[in-house]
Amino acid sequence: MAYARRGLRAPKAAEREQAATMALLLLGLALAGCWGNPSDEPPVHLQQNMDFQERGEAQERNDFFADHRVMRPPVPETVAVGHLKEDDHMWRGRLPNGALADALPAGLELGPALLDRGQKRYDIYCQPCHGEMGYGDGPATRRGGGFAVKPANFHQDKFRPVPLGYFYDVATNGKGSMKGYKSQIPVEDRWAIAAWVRTLQVASNAEPSDVPEQAAAAMADQRPRRIQ
């Protein structure tokens, strides 16, 4: 026995057990005290240093108000200065005669910048349901049992003749089972999205001859972009 050679006696079973328990406890302590251990206890700050002050921050709870909201909802039937939204074309997508407008409102200019913005905003807010190309087949429709009412496919014939203001109006106020996005997307971006939807429609019906010569040459050089 190795113990006997060194002039030691072999440990008893109880002692071994004791040693194992102690080792486990120490290991447990060491692991519990490591950086980055997950915990649902709020962080303990030993030196508070005015970390938390008596003031309201966005979306915080505050018991000063009866509804406990720091952020006060606007008083009903009031309009904040500068938020009257007088421009019917810009805010409601409608002409003076009440019909939906088929052009961008004054102040927004159709161009690559607006369409680029429209595409990027569409990909954030519309693509989850309507799909990247607008066929109504976004990822949200394919999960959790799918949608009872399918999102609109912009390439259906009934959507081809509708005015630009229609897409703006639906993005703003919703339609059927789709909710409005006026609180989620600023007004200029809703117009940019409407312009992008129209672009998708035009693109799906385009002929190779519609592509300008310069762009066609550039397209021939470019390999198809891989979708990540």
Partner: peptide, 14 residues
Amino acid sequence: YWFSPRYTDVGYRP
């Protein structure tokens, strides 16, 4: 080690 925010804050998962 143990007063560092890398210990007190990282891993907070309420």
